[in-house]
């Protein structure tokens, strides 16, 4: 690495410290998941798969997995279906206050999620008696809208409007021009926004926290509650399974669009 400038020992030491903090605790979660003992102790007492069996057999976790998948899939799909037209209007429409409008759709990123959760709990669940699934779906969709608008917007900005005009000039209807010309150009943005949205919704705690009921609970909040009540390695096993699933998602993300691109788009 003779080409790098940061061979300075201080810089290298800081970088190593950073990686240790980011990665090592995750390794310990995996290590404790395979313990044969019944406490969160390190080094683990013996090796077994007991706690994986326990985690899979624990019905609150399994129900929560299904609930979280369902919520994340619906919210992501809804955010894309609502967000893509907004992107089109913002980028292709001739409207005043375009910047302001885009800012409005990005605003859910700015307000703390816990505050939004409180607002939805208080106003929609208690005030309007909406059930918690509907409230969660509304909240998660609003939270994912900024991702849908911004990330697909970045794709649209790269697409040449002349192609759509050509399609229209050749007699295609606006709807047909959208589906045959614009939408294919948006695909990388749609995949990125979809992946990012799904993961964000699936992992969310602050927004979902106050919106839980016995009938419909999300996985991260269920795991959080479990850790607080009992201090056994079952959550380590559940965490390891979540980690494994996340690795699969990461590999898919890297193969389809590329990691850095997905995350580069959201915080410009």
């Amino acid at each position: 690495m003779s080409g790098t400038r940061l061979r300075h020992p201080v810089a290298a030491a800081l970088a190593v410290a950073g990686y240790v903090i980011m990665i090592v605790p995750i390794g310990f979660v995996v290590a404790t998941a395979f313990t044969a003992g019944s406490t969160l102790r390190f080094p683990p007492e013996g090796l077994s798969l007991t706690w994986f069996g326990e985690a899979v057999a624990y019905s609150p976790f399994m129900e929560a997995v299904v609930s979280s998948l369902e919520l994340a899939a619906l919210a992501t799909a809804l955010a894309l279906v609502l967000g893509v037209p907004v992107t089109l209007a913002v980028h292709r429409g001739r409207i005043p206050g375009r910047g302001l409008l885009e800012g409005l759709f990005l605003s859910p990123l700015v307000v703390p999620e816990l505050v939004v959760g409180l607002a939805l709990y208080q106003q929609l669940m208690i005030g309007l008696h909406l059930d918690n699934f509907t409230t969660l779906l509304l909240g998660h969709t609003a939270l994912l809208l900024p991702y849908a608008v911004r990330v697909t917007g970045a794709s649209l900005a790269l697409a040449d409007p002349a192609l759509e005009e050509a399609a229209r000039g050749l007699g295609a209807s606006p709807v047909r021009a959208f589906f045959t010309v614009t939408l294919p150009m948006l695909r990388p943005g749609l995949v990125s926004a979809g992946l990012l949205g799904f993961v964000t919704s699936f992992n969310n705690v602050p927004l979902s926290l106050l919106l839980q009921t016995r009938d419909f609970r999300t996985l991260p909040v269920t795991m959080l509650d479990y850790v607080q009540q009992s201090y056994d390695p079952m959550v380590a096993a559940a965490s390891t399974l979540v980690l494994a699933a996340t690795v699969v998602v990461a590999v898919v993300a890297e193969r389809t669009v590329g990691f850095a691109k997905i995350f580069g788009g959201i915080n410009r």
């Binding site: 605790p25 995750i26 404790t32 991260p220 850790v227 965490s239 996340t246 990461a250 890297e254 990691f259």
Partner: peptide, 21 residues
């Protein structure tokens, strides 16, 4: 990629590691 990967991973899982540490 190793630095970005944790962004995809649940905060609960990441924070849980510190209980073990």
């Amino acid at each position: 990629a190793l630095a970005i990967f944790p962004l995809l991973l649940s905060n609960v899982v990441r924070t849980f590691g510190w209980l073990v540490v």
